[in-house]
């Protein structure tokens, strides 16, 4: 009983902090200075039609590098945790047979899902979407394949090769911006192109392709590591 009261007190205190912190003033009628700067100068400085992409890849590119590093760390820690008993896997585990419809459909739909993921991260500077969404879509394609065929083994070597090559390329492109243009991850070392066309916005499409591959392989690694625990004993 005392514990319940204490918990309720914590919740109420947290609610008061949140309400005071936001304050419930009226909604903003116009953008603040930073956002206005992005909206006015973004198209000519960066050249991406999607301003969210401009912020993620160029203005706050270093944050994105840190973010994919965190994701890499979590993926490798999960791999370290769950891989220890790989050798114990002797007898083929019993899994329920998947239905004919699922296994047939997954063979047709999975390549289309992968293609759609690639489309999303190549067009990230023009339409909603980008490397993170595209990577998540690629990983969902892998989930469909694993659901249709639970005994399939995912080749972790390919995943780690793709992951490290795209990570290194991401950093190298950033350094290239440092050498040839104004700063780390500056996209201006390739010509800006015509605003709103597929080949535009300097290096943003190339950087986003590598981010998409990196995020896709990391999420696929997490999912396949957790899926492989279904097969082992204990």
């Amino acid at each position: 009983m005392l514990k319940k009261i204490f918990t309720a007190a914590v919740i109420v205190a947290f609610a008061i902090i949140l309400l005071k912190g936001y304050g419930f003033s009226g909604p903003d009628q116009q953008l603040n200075e930073v956002a206005e700067r992005y909206a006015e100068k973004g198209p000519e400085e960066v050249g991406a039609a999607n301003l969210v992409t401009a912020v993620i890849v160029t203005y706050r590119g270093l944050d994105t590098l840190g973010e994919v590093t965190i994701l890499f760390l979590t993926a490798s820690i999960i791999g370290f945790f769950l891989k220890t008993r790989r050798e114990d896997l002797t007898a083929p585990p019993q899994v329920r047979k998947t239905s004919e419809i699922l296994s047939t459909a997954s063979r047709i739909i999975s390549p289309i899902i992968f293609l759609f993921g690639a489309y999303v991260f190549i067009n990230g500077h023009l339409t909603p979407g980008g490397g993170f969404q595209g990577g998540a879509i690629v990983a969902s394609g892998l989930v469909l394949m694993l659901l249709a065929n639970p005994l399939k083994t995912v080749n972790h070597k390919i995943i780690s090769v793709v992951e490290s090559i795209s990570g290194i390329s991401f950093v190298l492109l950033g350094v290239l911006g440092l050498v040839l243009a104004a700063g780390f991850l500056d996209n201006a070392f390739i010509g800006p192109g015509r605003f709103g066309s597929l080949i535009s916005a300097g290096a943003i499409p190339i950087i986003y392709i590598f981010i998409g591959l990196k995020v896709g392989s990391e999420l696929s690694g997490i999912v396949s590591n957790l899926q492989e625990t279904q097969k082992e004993e204990i």
Partner: peptide, 27 residues
Amino acid sequence: AARQIVDPLPQAMVLTAIVIGIGITAL
């Protein structure tokens, strides 16, 4: 553009936060 769009910065931050969130949940 400055008078017609919403703030892009919180959206970019939330985008990365969601991806980190799934990493933490999986861990």
